[in-house]
Amino acid sequence: MGLALPAPDIARALIRISHEILERNSGSANITLLGIPTRGAHLAKRIASAMEKIEGTSVQMGTLDITLHRDDLRMRAPRALMPTVIPPLGVEGRDVVLIDDVLFSGRTIRAALDALGEIGRPKSVQLAVLVDRGHRQLPIRADFVGKNLPTSIEQSVVVHLTELDGADEVLIEGPLP
């Protein structure tokens, strides 16, 4: 098991992503951050508070559960649904930034786009991830990436966050590429 991203790097990456989101969207006024549970939701909170520090205004932030739209439901035990919380201004006409911990096959994001479509019609949808580990199976790319991690398909990437796991770190498990 290798440490791919220690805590300080994670912190720096999130600050950078916050700046990039603000820059790309010319401020936070029309932005709605939606974290994908579980870890994406915590990352969204951190990015929101970083943006609020930078801008000095509050940011629209919520969570978007994608379970009901997954295409791999039948391959696992029944999953509990996670909360979807849409902030007061909704998604209609907003610049929505989806936030997740790891971008891999792209299937989660495909499900997230479907789930978002249930709720409304944003002006744009962007994607921020802490780690992009490659091996895409769908034509999806991230707009904001904390770190690109080249991995072999046999490996797995594990993200630990203080809120859930007691520490911030990104680990790579399994055989080296």
């Binding site: 439901l73 039948r74 035990a77 029944p78 999953r79």
Partner: peptide, 18 residues
């Protein structure tokens, strides 16, 4: 219906996964 049918019951020995 979701809890009984969406997942794969072969893995469901321990109830709902998260």
């Amino acid at each position: 219906l979701y809890l009984l049918l969406a997942g794969n019951q072969e893995f469901a020995e321990t109830g709902v996964s998260s």
